[in-house]
Structure formats: structure tokens, C-alpha cells
């Protein structure tokens, strides 16, 4: 993902064009075709975040897994640790899509919410 000393390159996903945008170590942006690409690349460089989508086990035999998502993006580097937190959970009560399943994952302030109904 990095190119050269201190350079950072990312494929912009702000639109389908998919520019390869590079941020230099001095914060100069090149390769973008529009301002959205510039903003995207800078954010990806400074603090890349992602919505985590995963599942949580349930005690319901017909639906052994409940799909969940974080209610806000979390730092990219925490995705795997957050998935491990969710892996320890097991739901044994009725849940509606949108209900919070796990609060404040890894101190990020983000909660995992159900994306489907259970039971």
C-alpha cells in the first residue's frame, strides 16, 4: 500500500473511476481526478476507518448466526480485534434489526447493531 519513502497510495472508491491517488510525505496529493478523491486519500492516509460487518452466534438452532455491523466506522487496524470480540458473544434473546448487540467495542465508541431480526 505504501510506495517510496513515506508515500502512500490508495485506490479511490469515491466513484467507480477508481483513481490511484498518492499522498506524499509532505501531504501533497496527486493522481486524483476530483476533490472527492483528494479528501478520500487524505482521510485514508491520516485515519483509515471502516464499518465492520460480521456475525454473532445465537442459541437459535434455525438461525445460528445474527448478522451485525458497527454503527460507525472504526479504525481499520482494529477490525480483526473487533471481530474477535464479537466471536465471544452469543445471543439468546429476541433481537430486532437496529438493536445494539455489543456496546463500545474496544473503546472506539462504536456499537455492534443487529442488521436482521432474530426469533
Amino acid at each position: 500500500m505504501t510506495k517510496g519513502a513515506g508515500e502512500f497510495t490508495v485506490t479511490c472508491v469515491a466513484c467507480p473511476v477508481g483513481c490511484e491517488v498518492t499522498v506524499s510525505d509532505r501531504g501533497e496529493v496527486r493522481g486524483n481526478r476530483c476533490d472527492r478523491g483528494r479528501e478520500y486519500a487524505l482521510l485514508e492516509h491520516r485515519d483509515p476507518r471502516r464499518i465492520l460487518t460480521s456475525t454473532v452466534r445465537t442459541t437459535c438452532p434455525d438461525l445460528p448466526l445474527l448478522p451485525v455491523r458497527t454503527d460507525r466506522p472504526i479504525p481499520k487496524r482494529l477490525l480483526f480485534e473487533a471481530a474477535k470480540i464479537l466471536a465471544t458473544e452469543c445471543i439468546s434473546r429476541p433481537v430486532k434489526a437496529g438493536d445494539v448487540v455489543v456496546r463500545d467495542i474496544l473503546g472506539t465508541g462504536a456499537s455492534a447493531v443487529a442488521t436482521d431480526d432474530l426469533f
Partner: peptide, 19 residues
């Protein structure tokens, strides 16, 4: 399809498949 990315065009927000 439990990942997000559905509905940006239709609903103007990024939903997961189940949503």
C-alpha cells in the same frame, strides 16, 4: 450478504444485505 454497500443509489445510504 452481510457486508455493507447496498442501496447507495436507491436509498442514499449504505446498507447491508439483510437490511
Amino acid at each position: 450478504c452481510i457486508h455493507a454497500g447496498f442501496g447507495v443509489k436507491w436509498f442514499g445510504e449504505e446498507l447491508t444485505g439483510p437490511e
